[in-house]
Design a protein around this nucleic acid. Structure first.
Length: 553
RNA sequence: GCCCCCGUAGCUCAAUGGAUAGAGCAACGGCCUUCUAAUCCGUAGGUUGCAGGUUCGAAUCCUGCCGGGGGCGCCA
């Protein structure tokens, strides 16, 4: 029996009890009768706080109500025991056979176990990273790469049609500064006041010199800068793409901001908003009346010099995404951009869309670099950045991705490269990966010893570590669903760590391959199924994180 | 000044409004002639920043304060 079946039984029972108390059974919805994993395993396999939640509503004392639920539940098939505890919790213990049957189901469903239908058929555009091509990928970008890619997988597992998109900002003043820095490097001049330092500028400048077929110094200054801009941005972008690919993150669409301006999409978006009556002219500029939609001030869309303001690109980009047919547009932004959320939502509403539904912005906190306990200020311009490549070199792709995806995005995280490089064992990714490698070792040894899966007797899976392991496996689909609902892939990682712990404890207590002269029995064959089911769920979960599930370690 | 995020074990961090707040690392003590000891078992470690409030129940929600980070342009 899995939680969904138990929940159905529970709802049935609670509705009957509610009716007996004179309440309308249909007023009781599944959300009122949660099936939870008790924190303390001694309390049972599952628990519900339904009596506490509903007691007042239907006018019954919670403990008495819980007692009635427990009694009705205990007589149901597959349930070994149901009892009342504390202020009105109902603790439920399943029969071993009912709990153990899950192992067979997981093996049947294979890589589909844990997938859901929350976003069936919904088209989602997930934009993340979108770092400016003015320098290599830094730690912050690496965090969004890890989180964004994992979130895409988590949403996909709920049936969504996800497009991973990178907004490539190749238009505007920052790019100009980048180009001027390259020119300065080329000429051996010092870095311009507002330019970018760092050795990578010298590298890129040198590569532009090699790539350019003609004589750079024969070009007029303006054209020279334009050449450095075009080639330099291209090189930088290729480098970013390569780093991301190395990191296991590939995008479906790399969207160039320049194309918005060149193709008239900015004008199209402004025209559309004008039709809707949200545009006005003042002080020689064109404005969007975002204050009608909750923004604290109106925003300039077209500056008085005729150039589009930054937001004009966002307008055009958002409209373009919607016109490409995406139901939902998700954007992961760093905390340094949180000030844009309000105006972006206002913009979304101005187009007639629903903020936080058609457009959703996830604000992630920053990654701090720490060295010997002291924070190190990272600055692209000063060249004191730690790149994604540095991180990968220090700890490897799996450990890096895992470390970045294992925390909720609204907490800032500290990365100490020296620490990670020295003591890579303190990264829990190895704990989880080791559990998977162990399942494979057991499988290999079982095959050699002649333990097969010709029998499956779930009632034999009655050891406490087996009950615990099965409960965790049963809980996995709920975690996957929750990760998608809350856009929190870190929940997958945390859950896998718990699963790995349950597996290691089971491994320690229950043998798949008999010892010595002991004959192979159905208990061993059945345990092999549990081993394979655990292996499958670990693979599925690590797959959602984009972290490898090794055969050996 | 206003806005957003955070404050939990020595460290890094978890925890749908639920029961005795949990993991990993670090510390200390145990288990390998047995499917991988990167495992497992045990000990120690806490006024969940502070003060109120909401309720059967608060780390979680509300208010105020303290501390840390970030943001508030016709920059991008």
């Amino acid at each position: 029996m899995d939680p969904a079946e138990l929940a159905a039984q529970l709802l049935d029972v609670v509705r009957a009890e509610a009716a007996a108390a004179g309440a309308d059974p249909e007023s009781i919805v599944p959300e009122d009768v949660p099936v939870e994993r008790p924190r303390d395993r001694d309390h049972g396999d599952w628990a519900t706080s339904a009596a506490l939640k509903l007691g007042k509503r239907i006018g019954r004392n919670p403990r008495e109500f819980a007692q009635a639920i427990a009694e009705a539940l205990a007589s149901r098939e597959g349930i070994a025991e149901a009892s009342v505890a504390g202020p009105g919790f109902v603790n439920i213990r399943l029969e071993a056979a009912a709990a153990g049957a899950l192992a067979a189901r997981i093996l049947e469903e294979g890589e589909h176990y844990g997938r859901g239908t929350l976003f069936d058929g919904v088209t989602i555009n997930l934009e993340f990273v979108s770092a400016n091509p003015t320098g290599p990928m830094h730690l912050g970008g690496a965090r969004w790469a890890a989180v964004g890619d994992s979130l895409a997988r988590v949403l996909d597992a709920q049936g969504a049609l996800v497009t991973r998109e990178y907004y490539f900002n190749d238009h505007g003043a920052q790019i100009d500064r980048f180009a001027r820095s390259l020119v300065a490097a080329h000429r051996g001049e010092p870095t311009p006041e507002d330019g970018y330092g760092g050795s990578y500028i010298l590298d890129i400048a040198a590569r532009v010199e090699v790539d350019y077929p003609g004589d750079l110094d024969a070009l007029p200054r303006e054209q020279q800068q334009e050449t450095f801009r075009e080639l330099g941005v291209g090189l930088m972008f290729d480098e970013i793409k390569a780093s991301l690919h190395e990191f296991g993150v590939d995008f479906d669409v790399y969207f160039h901001e320049d194309s918005l301006h060149e193709s008239g999409k900015v004008q199209h978006a402004v025209d559309r908003l004008r039709e809707l009556g949200h545009i006005f002219e003042a002080d020689g500029a064109t404005w969007l009346r975002t204050t009608d939609f909750g923004d604290d001030k109106d925003r300039v869309v077209i500056k008085s010099d005729g150039e589009g303001a930054y937001i004009s690109g966002d307008l055009a980009y958002y409209l373009d995404k919607r016109e490409r047919g995406f139901d939902r547009c998700l954007i992961i932004l760093g905390a340094d951009h949180h000030g844009y959320v309000q105006r972006m939502m206002a913009m979304c509403a101005a187009f007639g869309d629903t903020p936080h539904v058609n457009l959703e912005i996830l604000i992630g906190q920053l990654v701090n670099l720490v060295r010997e306990g002291e924070p190190v200020r990272m600055s692209k311009r000063a060249g004191t950045i730690v790149t994604m490549e540095d991180l990968v070199d220090a700890v490897g792709v799996d450990a890096a991705r895992y470390a970045l995806v294992r925390s909720p995005i609204d907490t800032s995280i500290d990365i100490d490269l020296d620490l990670l490089a020295k003591r890579t064992n303190d990264n829990p990714v190895f704990y989880v990966q080791y559990a998977h490698a162990r399942t494979r070792a057991v499988a290999r040894n079982a095959a050699e010893a002649g333990v097969d899966r010709s029998a499956f007797e779930p009632a034999l899976l009655d050891h406490p570590t087996e009950t615990a392991l099965l409960g965790r496996l049963a809980d996995y689909p709920r975690v996957a669903l929750q990760a998608a609902e809350l856009r929190e892939p870190h929940r997958i990682a945390r859950s896998l760590e718990e699963l790995a712990g349950d597996y290691h404890r089971w491994y320690d207590a229950c043998r798949v391959i008999p010892l010595g002269e002991e004959p192979i029995g159905d208990v061993h064959r059945t345990r092999l199924a549990l081993n394979e089911a655990t292996s499958q769920v670990l693979r599925n979960g690590l797959g959602l994180l984009g972290v490898a599930a090794p055969e050996r370690m």
